[in-house]
């Protein structure tokens, strides 16, 4: 095989990947919808109706993913765990643990609900960063799997 045809084939691959990257833009409602479901789950834990709020989060997450697939025609790969996304996730976990300790250990009513606001905001930021990382990977050709 000639080097020129190898180079042309790789250029074709890069072009297709760039087109996919352009399509991998989550609609505005996806991250905000997920954030709203997370907030509702935290509020439900705080105000003792978790048996409705937590299952609702699972159903909402699955429903949002189905809607995303239907609207874009693409089922995206798993979110990219970039250092920033991991850091935001650790902050969210620490906030949740702290709020639970405050509410159930210290008797501070509504602490988990307040933490839910922060975690919901983190979900939007981390979700957008993850999308951006995935698009960047596709455009730069830096795929961890060698694809």
């Amino acid at each position: 095989m000639e080097s020129e045809s190898a180079r042309l084939a790789l250029e074709g691959v890069a072009e297709v990947r760039a087109r996919v990257a352009d399509r991998l833009v989550s609609p505005w409602w996806y991250h905000y919808g997920l954030a709203a479901a997370i907030l509702l789950a935290y509020v439900s834990i705080s105000f003792r109706f978790a048996s409705y709020g937590v299952p609702f989060l699972a159903v909402a997450a699955a429903g949002l993913m189905m809607a995303l697939k239907r609207v874009t025609g693409i089922a995206p790969r798993a979110p990219r765990a970039t250092p920033a996304v991991v850091a935001w996730s650790l902050v969210a976990m620490a906030l949740t643990a702290g709020a639970m300790a405050l509410e159930w250990g210290g008797g501070v009513k509504g602490a988990v609900a307040v933490a839910g606001v922060a975690v919901a905001a983190i979900a939007v930021v981390a979700g957008r960063r993850s999308d951006r990382a995935l698009r960047g990977e596709l455009r730069d050709g830096h795929d961890p799997a060698g694809l």
């Binding site: 074709g12 691959v13 297709v16 990947r17 087109r19 996919v20 990257a21 991998l24 693409i74 089922a75 995206p76 790969r77 798993a78 596709l138 795929d143 799997a145 694809l147």
Partner: peptide, 8 residues
Amino acid sequence: AMLAAVES
């Protein structure tokens, strides 16, 4: 190449 970039 296109399908490698997505789940489906």
